[in-house]
Design a protein around this nucleic acid. Structure first.
Lengths: 146, 146
DNA sequence: TTCGCTGCAAAGGTTTTGCATCGGA
DNA sequence: TCCGATGCAAAACCTTTGCAGCGAA
């Protein structure tokens, strides 16, 4: 499940049909060296130390490119605007990786029922929120057509 | 696990120490009648039909109030800005409901390993993304102090 | 040489805030 | 009456876009 193995950046770019630019290379290296869940601004601040003239727009464009290529991943598929949950029953979400549509799935239908309430590091569990990410039937049909 | 039972709105407000205003009441009723995962703009459009003079700011303020009170819930705890995942190993997230801190937890440590790849409605599973929502040790300590 | 990439600045979308006024308790 | 709630407008973010010039292939 490793997303990017130790592969030269040039090779990664060839695979995805993108040009190897200096900005892109440094951005990639800086990102690989970071930990946690940085925001584009945080990545930008780090890259600026090595390329002071780089623009935030370039950072955004390339982060998107990396995410689309599967080189990096977003922490959440729901990072857009605020959405309110109208289904008050215990359920989780089926999120289509293509069209981003969200469908609810009943908790029992997932055949997953976690029991722990306290993890080893002391974290006190209130609830689990599960996103099942994949392809909805419509997008599967689209893919087989193309 | 029902978040809001059939309880008069006035009672709900008393419990949470908030005033019962006309706007708030209509907003609540309109939201309860909606399905899916509406955005504040969508809620605003609906409420405007009954209170044409209502402002979007009021809708935002009250949605937040409802979410903080537990009357409604957000679809995702990560609705803010884009975050990039730096941990390339299979893992999930511990998200503190107080301070919003995100910590990674190894997939195996969760003792959950779903096996299905296709659900009954045809949805093709690519991966599971699990947020374990609860209180981190620091916030638990904070709560017991206050 | 060509087409994609970059930097800049401006625009766009979403959400928050300050403030005067209004209204529920 | 009083303090919280509202509406408005402006500001504050975060992100995207248009475009002229630059640079990788």
């Amino acid at each position: 499940m490793e997303v990017s193995e130790k592969k030269p950046f040039r090779e990664l770019c060839n695979e995805h049909g993108i040009a190897v630019t200096h900005q892109r290379q440094v951005l990639y290296e800086v990102m690989k060296s970071m930990h946690g869940h940085p925001s584009p601004e945080e990545v930008y601040a780090r890259v600026k130390k090595r390329i002071p003239a780089i623009s935030l727009a370039t950072v955004y464009k390339n982060i998107h490119l990396f995410v689309e290529s599967g080189i990096f991943r977003e922490v959440s598929v729901h990072h857009g605007s605020l959405r309110v949950e109208m289904n008050h029953r215990p359920h989780h979400h089926l999120v289509c990786s293509e069209c981003k549509a969200i469908r609810d799935i009943d908790e029992r239908e997932l055949h997953l029922q976690p029991k722990q309430t306290r993890l080893s590091d002391g974290f006190l569990v209130e609830r689990y929120s599960i996103d099942v990410i994949g392809l909805c039937p419509q997008c599967q049909a689209m893919q087989s057509v193309q």
